[in-house]
Simulated scan of single mutants.
Amino acid sequence: MKTITLAGGCFWGIEAYFKRVRGVVHTSVGYSNGTKENPDYKEVCSGKTGHAEVCKIDYDDSILPLDKILDHFFRLIDPTVLNRQGNDTGTQYRTGVYYSSDDDLPEIKEFVKSIAKKYSSEIVTEIEPLHNFFPAEDYHQEYLEKNPSGYCHINFSLLKDEEKQDPV
């Protein structure tokens, strides 16, 4: 079991997408890499805490290796846009790959370097160690499952049938 934490704009859609990916064992949304201990949603949205909205993903790397997670993630985001994804704007909506194991850094850097050729602008997605993770309030967890018509900037059709979790 491995863990990676991804910031891709509003965390509702990132979580809903990755919960559908074969090999993902658990997800949790929260706030990472900011300066305040245990911030709440209102504090994070103020832009004063420095946190990003993130989805922490526990995965079975024998089924879903890190490069495949990154492939999924970069399908969902525009890595050339700073502090915005979809209609969401602010520093909390920046994109980022926050790793828990230093062993993952070379693979992440190599992946980003290989996809940079696809873009005419510089990739601004942060690549940093995960400094902290504070779970978001309960109502944010699995939000789109509880609120299927909730706002989401993620295109779920980017998930191919052969990549989906097996039905339970």
Rank of each mutant, 00 (worst) to 15 (best):
K113G: 02
R22L: 13
N33A: 00
F111K: 11
D71M: 04
K48A: 13
Y41A: 11
G96C: 10
L105V: 08
Q165L: 11
G13P: 07
T125W: 01
F11A: 06
T35S: 13
Y31L: 03
N38C: 03
G90A: 12
Y98S: 02
V29Y: 11
K146R: 14
P106T: 01
P148F: 12
P167N: 05
V54S: 05
K36V: 14
D104T: 06
E163I: 00
L64T: 02
G8F: 12
P129W: 01
Y98F: 15
E163P: 00
D166P: 00
V112G: 10
S120V: 13
Q92I: 07
E122A: 14
V21E: 01
I63M: 10
L82D: 11
K113Y: 11
G8Y: 11
E126N: 10
R94Y: 03
A136D: 07
C45K: 08
L144T: 09
C152I: 09
G8K: 13
P106H: 09
S28P: 04
P65A: 04
V21C: 01
L144E: 06
P135H: 08
N155G: 02
H26I: 00
F111S: 11
Y31K: 06
I57Q: 02
G30A: 05
A7N: 08
F133G: 11
G30P: 08
G8L: 09
C55A: 14
F111A: 10
I57V: 15
D40K: 05
D67K: 15
K42Y: 06
E142V: 01
N83L: 05
S120L: 12
I108Q: 07
R22E: 14
K146I: 07
E163D: 15
E110M: 04
K117H: 06
L159R: 10
I4K: 03
D103K: 14
G30S: 07
F134I: 00
S120H: 12
N155F: 07
L130N: 02
L66S: 10
V25L: 15
Y93Q: 00
N147G: 01
Q85T: 12
S28K: 13
E122I: 08
P79Y: 06
A52K: 09
E15W: 02
L64H: 11
G30V: 00
Y139L: 00
E128P: 02
G8N: 07
Q141V: 02
V25Y: 02
K117T: 14
N83Q: 15
K48D: 14
R75V: 01
L105R: 15
I77D: 07
I108S: 11
Y151V: 06
D88Q: 12
G86K: 08
K118R: 10
F74Y: 15
V81S: 15
N132T: 12
L82R: 15
L70H: 06
F18A: 00
A116T: 12
N33G: 04
E163T: 02
F134N: 07
L130S: 05
P79T: 14
E107R: 13
R20Q: 15
R22Y: 04
L76E: 07
V81G: 05
H72Y: 06
S120P: 02
G8S: 09
I4E: 02
G30F: 04
G150V: 04
F134L: 00
V29H: 02
G150Y: 13
F111R: 04
K113I: 01
S157E: 13
K48Y: 13
D78R: 12
I77M: 05
F156L: 13
I115W: 07
H72W: 03
K109N: 12
T91V: 10
E126P: 05
V54P: 06
I69T: 07
D88M: 10
